Computed example of a mutant assay.
Amino acid sequence: MFERFSSGYYLGRLYVQPRGEREAAIKRDDHERVNEQLYATGEGVERLDNPLVMKVGTRHYPVVGDDDVPRGTLTLPEDAVPGDLEGKLPGRREVFLANADRAEDLLQFTGWEGESSA
Score class of each variant (00 low, 15 high):
L74D: 06
P82M: 07
A80H: 07
G87P: 07
L89G: 00
D67M: 05
V81S: 01
D101R: 11
D105H: 12
D84R: 14
K88Q: 13
R93H: 14
P70V: 03
R92G: 14
V64S: 03
G91W: 02
G87D: 09
A80T: 04
N99D: 15
T58Y: 12
P62D: 09
P90N: 09
K88M: 10
F96A: 13
V63K: 05
P62T: 01
L52V: 02
V95I: 13
R92D: 15
A98H: 09
D67Y: 08
D105K: 13
N50Q: 05
T75E: 14
P51E: 09
D66M: 12
K88A: 11
A100S: 10
R71I: 01
G83H: 06
D67C: 03
T73S: 07
G87W: 05
T58A: 12
D101K: 09
E104C: 10
T58S: 12
R59E: 13
L106F: 00
E78V: 15
R102Y: 04
V81D: 05
P51H: 04
H60T: 15
P51I: 03
T58D: 14
D67R: 10
V53L: 01
L107M: 13
F96W: 14
T73R: 08
E104Q: 11
V64F: 05
L107A: 05
T58W: 11
G57D: 03
E86K: 15
D101A: 12
M54A: 08
G91T: 00
R59N: 06
G72Y: 04
F96I: 11
D101Q: 11
P82Y: 02
V56T: 03
N50I: 08
